[in-house]
């Protein structure tokens, strides 16, 4: 029964992810005065890419086609582990904070290897930037969620979420607000959004994520796109559920699951639209100022941990 719930969660996440990206692009297009390609465009793009044969650069090794698969698997596992729809989790894989962060890190490292594998200058440059950002992001994610775990006494995400659902006052406590702001900043950095990375850039020198996938094509590129978007769903889904824990299914009943699916879709799409609207006002920050931004978010997370011991 739990396995069925987790399978449903993966299915919802995979179906919702292209819609999320489509909504984000559409909001941006409308604000820029354009008509936009429509919400279904990312899904059409991925479907077309998956049907195309990949071309590998001369001298590129087996990682070119292995990394996209690794990235998708790591994203799917994290989507399965993060409590997006319900707090029921598989008994044999803990939905522990450290497990989720490690699973995401597998995808991060795989992407960095892909950038090096193609052997182009831009790929390696993207990989080094990607690892720099990852090294600054991971501690903040761990510390911020750790702050939320202190009152609960466990680092299992479902238990944290359950505690927040049963006692809504913890959601607006200083600890929670500081941790959520810190988490939001690092989620933007981890998923390659503005102001850390520009997903629509054509200038190789400013690229981070795009630089690593420049040499991938066809089916490989399709899996890479889907894998990176699923990371966005997992991380953004975690943040919206921690910020607004209402609607998450407390049991495995059909009614609760339907409500949870609807509530999660609405929360995720609204959060995505808000990010896209905010991005219209933002420019990408200079690469050497990214550590300042991420150090700021780490400070917030650290203050949150301190507050969680002092204010409770």
């Amino acid at each position: 029964m739990t396995a069925l719930a987790v399978a449903w969660q993966i299915l919802v996440a995979v179906a919702l992810t292209p819609v999320l990206v489509g909504v984000m692009r559409q909001v941006r297009a409308r604000l820029e005065g354009r008509v936009g390609a429509g919400v279904g465009q990312p899904w059409r793009d991925v479907r077309k890419l998956l049907a195309k044969e990949p071309l590998a650069a001369e001298g590129a090794g087996p990682l070119m086609s292995a990394v996209p698969v690794i990235l998708v698997i790591s994203s799917l596992v994290s989507v399965a582990l993060v409590p997006l729809l319900g707090i029921a989790t598989l008994a044999w894989v803990p939905d522990d904070l450290f497990v989720v962060v490690s699973v995401l890190l597998v995808g991060t490292v795989a992407l960095a290897l892909l950038g090096l594998e193609s052997g182009t200058a831009f790929g390696g440059m993207g990989s080094s930037r990607h690892m720099m950002i990852a090294a600054l992001v991971e501690p903040t994610v761990l510390v911020a969620v750790y702050a939320l775990s202190v009152p609960v006494g466990t680092t299992a995400l479902s238990s944290i979420l359950q505690a927040r659902m049963s006692d809504p006052t913890t959601v607006i406590s200083p600890v929670s607000l500081l941790a959520l702001v810190a988490l939001s900043i690092v989620v933007l950095a981890e998923t390659g959004r503005l102001p850390v990375d520009n997903p629509a850039t054509h200038l190789e020198l400013t690229m981070v994520h795009e630089a690593m996938i420049l040499e991938s094509s066809g089916r490989d590129l399709g899996w890479l796109e889907l894998g990176s978007w699923l990371r966005l769903t997992a991380l953004l889904g975690l943040v919206v559920n921690l910020a607004l824990p209402w609607g998450v299914a407390a049991d495995l009943g059909v009614g609760a699951t339907v409500i949870a699916t609807l509530a999660f879709s609405v929360k995720l799409l609204i959060a995505g639209s808000m990010i896209a609207a905010a991005e219209v006002f933002l420019a990408k920050v200079r690469l050497f100022r990214v550590p300042e931004l991420l150090a700021g978010s780490f400070v917030l997370a650290f203050l949150s941990v301190t507050a969680s011991y002092l204010l409770v």
Partner: peptide, 11 residues
């Protein structure tokens, strides 16, 4: 706005 017809510039 060629993007509304499903065309997009890539790098």
């Amino acid at each position: 706005d060629a993007e509304r017809y499903g065309a997009r510039l890539v790098a």
